[in-house]
């Protein structure tokens, strides 16, 4: 196509280019503002902010560790539950289900992503938490000695948060994994089948071919889980402690900001909350960047 330099084309380039640049500036701007607004906390606590576990607004002692821990732990649980389910859905829709079912099934799984977070939270409080509490009550004594299952059976806590996050992450992860599987050349599966592979062995070849992309899909899910606020706040128990127990009420970065922002009366308190926002911002950017790099590599290959 010949390049015609009319004033219209130039305006188009400038206009769309400006929008693109604007998005980049916006991200950078958020980083700058978060840093500026948390400067008191950064000055006072320095890097130790990441590793301190006291959170005491009354005495002005702030550390982010319980929140970082809670965010990473709940997201990890979500991932462990969601990844196999999401992969199973992707494999079924792409490799096994009859053609007629593919569209409706993809649509239905993606519908899960459209449910507002607060609705998940309500479902969590009224349905999930009571079930989790019943399960916790069933736990035998010896099991409660394992560090994963110590503490009173409250229902609200890490396990409920992990499960609800898993439900929210499945649609995204499964739809990206489905796209990756669809990008794997048919000839890879045929090569395996022609060697006498079973259906499952051929699917494993396809998974192997797209493995970096599949990992990327899981990481995208992780990115979503890290930042999820409302539903988690409603079921995690909101107690800033570092505990390995799935039964223990804990806290996440997003949840503490949402809960305490309006009550942060003094400057340092506010700055500490905003610095938590900065930490969350950095962690999600790194996770998302990693997942993008991984998914892109497969789509190109």
């Amino acid at each position: 196509m010949p390049i015609i330099k009319t004033s219209e084309d130039r305006a188009l380039r400038l206009g769309t280019g400006a929008f693109a640049v604007f998005v980049v500036l916006l991200v950078a701007g958020i980083g700058v503002v978060l840093t500026q607004q948390s400067v008191l906390s950064i000055r006072k606590f320095g890097l130790a902010f990441w590793t301190r576990s006291t959170w005491n607004p009354v005495s002005g002692e702030f550390g982010a560790l319980p929140f970082i821990w809670g965010t990473l732990y709940s997201s990890l649980i979500a991932l462990l539950i969601a990844a196999p389910i999401a992969l199973g859905i992707a494999i079924f829709i792409n490799e096994i289900s009859p053609l007629k079912l593919r569209q409706p099934l993809s649509y239905l799984t993606e519908l899960l992503a459209a449910i507002p977070s607060i609705v998940y939270g309500l479902w969590g409080i009224f349905v999930l938490v009571p079930i989790v509490r019943k399960l916790e009550l069933l736990a035998p004594e010896w099991l409660k000695k394992v560090p994963l299952f110590t503490g009173p059976p409250l229902g609200v806590g890490m396990l409920s948060a992990g499960v609800i996050l898993a439900v929210m992450v499945v649609p995204l992860t499964s739809s990206v994994a489905r796209e990756i599987l669809r990008g794997v050349p048919m000839t890879q599966r045929e090569a395996a089948l022609a060697l006498g592979a079973t259906r499952w062995e051929a699917i494993r070849i396809a998974l192997g071919y797209g493995r970096t992309g599949i990992i990327g899909a899981v990481m995208l899910g992780l990115g979503r889980a890290l930042g999820e606020t409302m539903a988690v706040t409603m079921v995690i128990g909101n107690n800033p402690q570092v505990s390995t127990s799935l039964f223990a009420p804990q806290y996440t970065m997003a949840a503490v900001i949402a809960n305490e922002f309006t009550e942060a009366a003094d400057e340092l308190y506010l700055h500490a909350l905003i610095e938590i926002g900065l930490v969350l911002f950095l962690i999600t950017i790194v996770v998302n960047a990693l997942s993008r790099i991984l998914t892109r590599r497969v789509v190109r290959a």
Partner: peptide, 29 residues
Amino acid sequence: RRRVGMVFQKSNPFPKSIYENVAYGLRIN
């Protein structure tokens, strides 16, 4: 299909080593 092998129009090696490509059919056996 183990008795009737097939070679395709476009070469389609697995993204594995040369050795593992050839060994694949035997391993799944």
